[in-house]
Computed example of a mutant assay.
Amino acid sequence: MPQPAAQDDLDAIAVELYALPPSEFTAARNARASASDRPLGARVKKLPKPAVAAWAVSLLAREGQLGEALELASALREAQDDLDAAELSRLGAQRRALVGALSTQAVALAGERGVAVGAAARDDIEKTINAAVMDAAAAAAVMTGRLVRPLEATGFEHVDLADALGGSAPDGGAAPPPPTRDDLAERRARKEAEKAAREAERAESEAQRELARIETRLGKARERADLLHERLEELRADVARFEREAAEADDEAERMDGKREEAASVARAASKKAEAARAAVEELAR
């Protein structure tokens, strides 16, 4: 069994070699094997040439483009452990879009380094990135930058990592242990509490918005009420003035009515005198 220091040396050499385009790998590997001491050189000589798809995914990892995918992977595994169907559906759609975008990015990066990627290799790139998203051990393998063959996730089984890496497997290549019942209960309780908190925050926000709307309407209603009260006071003052003027007009009409009676009486007396005078004149004329 190789010593840890020797294994570290092999892994470091493998990282350097797998950073080269696949067409340059074999010559560079053989040269490095010849330059190393015999035990290490023999192991370097056994490093397999990477498939184009595996090399392109390692390139993507070295360029730091897989961070978002691995964050999504963690959320997916948590939703899967919690049997959260709605969250799995939402994250699944996000996963497909992200895997497609990263596959395109990997092909572009390979092209910038003069490596053409065929249709079959493109499919393998997408399957490998998807496997890294779906499986923590596959993600750890991809992030070493020493992938030599494509990976594929099949259902909920762990991804087969046999002979997938040049050098050692990360952390012995073991898949993470399944969560215990207590872990799941705690995680579900935390998610339920977080969901309840989000719902409470949404309810609080909506209540605050409704309060603001009502306060705005209240302000307008009070402003209108004040205006109408002012107008009502003005109208009351007008009514009082009109009542006074009407009473004065009634008094004036009553006085005029009395004077009319007096004038009518005088007019009647004058008419009688005038009639008597005309009669006298007619009598004299005979």
Rank of each mutant, 00 (worst) to 15 (best):
P4D: 12
P4K: 03
Q7T: 15
D11L: 08
V15D: 01
E16C: 01
L20E: 04
P21T: 14
P22N: 10
F25R: 06
T26P: 05
A27I: 15
R29S: 05
S34H: 12
A35S: 12
A35H: 01
R38D: 02
R43Y: 03
K46R: 12
K46D: 07
L47Y: 03
K49D: 05
W55R: 09
V57C: 00
V57P: 02
L59C: 04
L60A: 10
L60D: 00
A61R: 08
R62H: 08
E68H: 07
A73S: 10
A75R: 14
A75Q: 14
A79C: 05
A79S: 04
G92E: 11
A93G: 15
Q94G: 03
R96A: 08
A106N: 03
A108W: 01
L109A: 02
L109H: 09
A110C: 06
A116M: 13
R122S: 04
R122P: 03
D124P: 07
I125W: 10
N130P: 01
N130D: 15
A131K: 08
A131G: 04
A132N: 02
A132P: 00
A138R: 06
A141F: 01
A141H: 03
T144W: 08
P150R: 14
E157Q: 13
D160Q: 10
L161P: 07
D163N: 14
P170Y: 15
D171A: 15
G172H: 02
A174I: 11
D182Q: 10
D183V: 05
E186V: 07
R187G: 01
A189C: 03
A196R: 13
E199D: 01
E199K: 05
R202F: 04
R202I: 04
A203W: 06
E204P: 01
S205F: 11
E206F: 06
A207E: 12
L211I: 15
R213K: 11
R213E: 15
R213F: 05
I214E: 09
I214P: 00
E215P: 00
E215N: 08
R217M: 13
G219Q: 09
A221V: 10
E234M: 13
A237K: 09
A240W: 01
R241T: 14
E245I: 01
E254L: 09
E262P: 09
E262S: 11
A263M: 12
S265W: 11
V266Q: 12
A267G: 00
A269W: 12
A270Q: 13
E275R: 14
A277S: 14
R278Q: 14
R278E: 11
A279L: 15
A280G: 09
L284A: 01
A285P: 03
